[in-house]
């Protein structure tokens, strides 16, 4: 019986150690999520709770050609995230 050990032997161990912790997830399409990690699998399909989604969009001002960066935020109670959109997962900073 494997004990619940705290060593990171393979990359997914890092995710395992973040269960029930707040994590940051970077997704394709300039999307970011912050929420509590409740479930994941080897594809990085994920269930998060109390999720804040941030979507960043860049628009070009038609006159000045300046980049206007907009961020849209929303809260979702529970969210299933399909793994193929995941770029990066980071546990909270343990300080």
């Amino acid at each position: 019986m494997a004990e619940e050990d705290n060593t990171v032997r393979e990359p997914l161990d890092l995710i395992r150690l973040s269960l029930d912790e707040k994590v940051y997830v970077k997704l394709k399409g300039e999307r970011e999520l912050r929420g509590k990690l409740h479930a994941y699998d080897q594809h990085l399909n994920i269930i998060l709770g109390d999720v804040e989604e941030t979507v960043t969009t860049v628009e070009i001002d038609e006159e000045t050609f300046e980049e206007i960066i907009k961020t849209n935020k929303r809260m979702v109670p529970y969210l299933f995230v399909r793994g193929d959109g995941v770029i990066l997962v980071s546990p909270p900073l343990r300080s």
Partner: peptide, 9 residues
């Protein structure tokens, strides 16, 4: 990031 996991694809 203190620690981070990057999906291989």
């Amino acid at each position: 990031y203190g620690d981070c996991f990057i999906r291989g694809n």
